[in-house]
Design a protein around this nucleic acid. Structure first.
Length: 480
RNA sequence: GCCUCAAUAGCUCAGUCGGUUAGAGCGGCGGACUGUUAAUCCGUAGGUCAAAGGUUCAAGUCCUUUUUGAGGCGCCA
């Protein structure tokens, strides 16, 4: 459909009779329809000749009703748009009776719209968010394709329950109350569809490593499932994750890749979705007018995105982070709820201090204690000033969102890996193939996982992750 | 899973110390309007105050339980 920013269309079609189809955003002065078809943020003005338009058609030109208008495209007499269609005929394609329709041409809360997920994409905010979501997804593939990475489809149903990334959703064809039992009274998964217990994937990483040790540079991008009872604005039970895995990369290559990846995605949206971004930016400013000054964002949305693209991320080790936190004002004043001690994981309040107060930019923290990180992360050599064993792991922390990326160099040394599995209670026999990758033609390699929705959340400035995925799945909610 | 807060008209909200007939804006409906930009103007209808129970002469307001939602925390991406 034509819209004011579609310059090619303007010039080639002015003076011609055309048919346009879309949904009514507004009907002003009994005369002007703002028609919207989703192709961009903009609407096209259709001028109605109401003396020659049947009464029953005029009555059905309502908010969000769908229609086809045929008429001549002309340069607009009004100020707000470049071109407009002088309608000769209007055909109502789909009514939207305002007496029963749950959407209204006014500001609605995100919570209300979440209950109307079948209609919320028709709003300015959500249409902008989902156009941008598409843009980010496209940019993911473009980024990796340009760099010679292969897109790998790792399984959604997985039989390995040793991935250690949280609670899993069971996949079974057994009736919930009629599962066959073994002699010892346990569910007999040998009789289940796959002949073993299976779950929805929590990560494609382990299979990604198989691909990386064959094709060199690969990435996955697919749905991921966590059955955690997480009730926050940045967790979903079903989300999309991007996981590059690269042979011959160490932790530093890994951080470089992750940082340039983040910047590429953000820059792609800045370049290609300015109208949508501009609307979201203004929307946030409007929303923050009624908020206390210290609760507002330090920078506007677009300003923030440009800042992230143009500046290096801060890089520190976990050990340095702990030292820095223990010397911080909130620590000395006892304002942290959780203790800061080498060997315990950084809490959200600590990460927020580093990102939002101290460095005021994205921060990459690396070399975490081995004790609370996954078994597959590569053990670092001991270092002076570091009180315990660390692994080559890194997290990228963003303002407002927290962890957007978590990654590591993988343990490629067979003996070290098997020892770590044993101390961490992972059964080597369950991951025999993973171990064989180290035995035969193994290589140093590294990778990371990016939470796709978290990145979209950051780019759109949306406060709740449920509002950047079309149909959110969270504890107690799988409507639509 | 834990903590805190909330639920009043279709939507967004106000409702004082427990007191008589629960209000506003927007939206809806009826009307006016041929250059509007979330158009504007006039008129009008609309309520089981989330549910159940309790205290009280009297409950939207206080108490208990439940439901739903939000924010924070934990788990993580």
């Amino acid at each position: 459909m034509l819209h004011p920013s579609h310059h090619e269309g303007e010039h080639s079609l002015i003076g011609q009779t055309i048919t346009v189809m879309g949904w009514v955003r507004a009907f002003r002065n009994n005369q002007f329809i703002a028609l919207y078809d989703g192709s961009s943020f903009n609407t096209l003005q259709v001028v109605v000749d109401f003396e020659h338009t049947p009464e029953e058609v005029l009555k059905k030109i309502n908010f969000h009703s769908c229609l086809a208008a045929t008429g001549k495209l002309v340069a607009s007499q009004g100020a707000g748009q470049v071109v407009e269609v002088i309608a000769e005929t209007i055909e109502i394609l789909g009514e939207a009776n305002p007496e029963n329709y749950s959407m209204q041409p006014k500001r609605m809360t995100m919570e209300y719209l979440r209950e109307k997920a079948h209609f919320r994409m028709r709003t300015n905010t959500f249409s902008a968010v989902f156009r941008i979501r598409h843009g980010v997804a496209f940019a993911v593939h473009q980024f990796f394709n340009e760099r010679g990475y292969y897109y790998m489809h790792t399984p959604i149903i997985t039989g390995s329950d040793a991935e250690g990334a949280g609670e899993m959703f069971r996949v079974t064809t057994f009736e919930a109350n009629k599962a066959p039992l073994t002699d010892t009274g346990e569910v007999d998964f040998k009789k289940d569809f796959f002949g073993k217990a299976t779950n929805l994937t929590v990560s494609g990483q382990l299979q990604g490593e198989i691909a990386a040790l064959a094709l060199g540079k690969v990435y996955t991008f697919g749905p991921t499932f966590r059955a955690e009872n997480s009730n926050t604005s940045r967790h979903l039970a079903e989300f999309w994750m991007i996981e590059p895995e690269v042979a011959f990369h160490d932790i530093y290559d890994n951080m470089d890749l992750a940082e340039s990846f983040c910047k590429y995605l953000i820059d792609y949206i800045l370049q290609n979705f300015p109208d949508d971004l501009d609307y979201l930016d203004k929307r946030i400013q409007e929303e923050e007018k009624s908020m206390a000054k210290d609760l507002r964002r330090p920078m506007g949305l677009i300003e923030t995105l440009k800042f992230v693209v143009e500046n290096d991320f801060e890089r520190i080790t976990y050990t340095e982070a702990v030292r820095l936190l223990r010397n911080s004002k909130p620590y000395k004043k006892g304002q942290f709820e959780y203790p800061v001690e080498w060997g315990t994981d950084l809490q959200a309040e600590h990460e927020r201090y580093l990102v939002e107060k101290h460095f005021k930019k994205p921060v990459i923290v690396r070399d975490y204690p081995a004790s609370f990180k996954a078994f597959y992360m590569r053990l670092n050599d001991t270092a002076p000033d570091v009180p315990g064993d660390t692994v080559a792991a890194m997290d990228i922390l963003f303002p407002g969102i927290g962890e957007v990326i978590g990654g590591s160099q993988r343990e490629e040394r067979y003996d070290v890996l098997i020892q770590k599995m044993e101390t961490m209670g992972v059964h080597p026999e369950d991951l025999w193939w993973y171990l064989e990758l180290r035995k035969f033609g193994g290589a140093p390699h590294a990778g990371f996982g990016m939470g796709f929705e978290r990145m979209v959340q950051f780019i759109t400035g949306m406060g709740n992750i449920r509002d950047v995925i079309p149909f959110p799945r969270t504890p107690g909610n799988a409507e639509f």
